[in-house]
């Protein structure tokens, strides 16, 4: 069994569901966790990081994900994305999303530009704990959405499980690895992670804290999976990384 823990799905023609299914089949991936995509054209990522272009943050395609997870509930799981600047509306939105079958929260600091220490983010983290669904977020170089801030949330909300996307910030975020080792409820998702970074994380926080993800369509799932395969770890470690950890967090079999 292999579950891809991080796949983007949006409304455009870049990274369609058909393409995803083909890529999953090619890589031998059985299931995937879908998060809303397309708010940023990842093919032009640098323009967003430098602020030259602005994300389409108001148009979050949760409806696309909802349709897919209801159509193929045994193959796809969904994370619901909200804009914390919507405050109470964001919290209510997430609760509705969970009740509609979404299995987790996805935050996008680079799209919506909020602080992980804001009141609404705290409320979202608390809600995730109440519903036992994971809280997934990228971390950035921006101090308000840093690895340290994500770790502070994990400490503040011990009943909520947190996933740091893309192994943290940069090619080898040692802080993210050490925080994952320090806090039981903090996990790292491997997409965009370097081989050396994932290898170091395996040694620092163990396989029980790593979740395989591909970041489709920016990356091909087969190449992301190959990086994990190259770790040459024990079968039980592969199982943890490739499906067991995410199964545990999603409460699925």
């Amino acid at each position: 069994m292999i579950i891809d823990g991080h796949v983007h799905m949006g409304k455009g023609d870049f990274g369609t569901l058909d393409e995803l299914k083909q890529d999953m089949q090619k890589a031998g991936i059985d299931k995937a966790v879908l998060v809303p995509g397309g708010m940023i054209d990842v093919r032009r990522m640098t323009r967003y990081i430098t602020g030259v272009e602005k994300p389409k943050g108001d148009d979050i395609p949760n409806d696309v994900i909802e349709h897919i997870i209801h159509s193929e509930p045994d193959k796809f799981y969904g994370f619901y994305c909200v804009n914390p600047h919507k405050r109470r509306e964001a919290v209510i939105d997430l609760e509705n999303g969970i009740q509609k079958g979404f299995k987790g929260l996805k935050l996008a600091p680079i799209v919506h530009g909020f602080s992980l220490a804001s009141k609404t983010v705290m409320e979202l983290a608390d809600l995730c704990g109440q519903y036992n669904v994971p809280f997934y977020s990228h971390v950035l170089f921006s101090p308000g959405a840093s690895t340290k801030k994500m770790a502070a949330l994990a400490k503040e909300f011990p009943n909520t499980n947190f996933i740091i996307g893309h192994m943290g910030f940069g090619p080898a975020d040692v802080d993210a690895m050490e925080y994952a080792a320090m806090y039981d409820n903090l996990y790292l998702e491997t997409s965009q992670g370097s081989f050396a970074g994932i290898k170091t994380a395996l040694e620092t926080c163990g396989s029980s804290k790593l979740i395989f993800g591909s970041e489709f369509p920016l990356y091909k799932p087969i190449s992301s999976l190959m990086t994990i395969r190259e770790l040459n770890c024990k079968e039980s470690d592969f199982d943890n990384i490739l499906y067991k950890n995410i199964q545990y967090l999603l409460n699925v079999k």
């Binding site: 600047h85 405050r87 600091p109 602080s115 804001s118 609404t120 921006s142 101090p143 308000g144 959405a145």
Partner: peptide
Amino acid sequence: EIISSKLEFSCG
């Protein structure tokens, strides 16, 4: 809260 969050996001 929105302005506070945006400010903390960008400069911590």
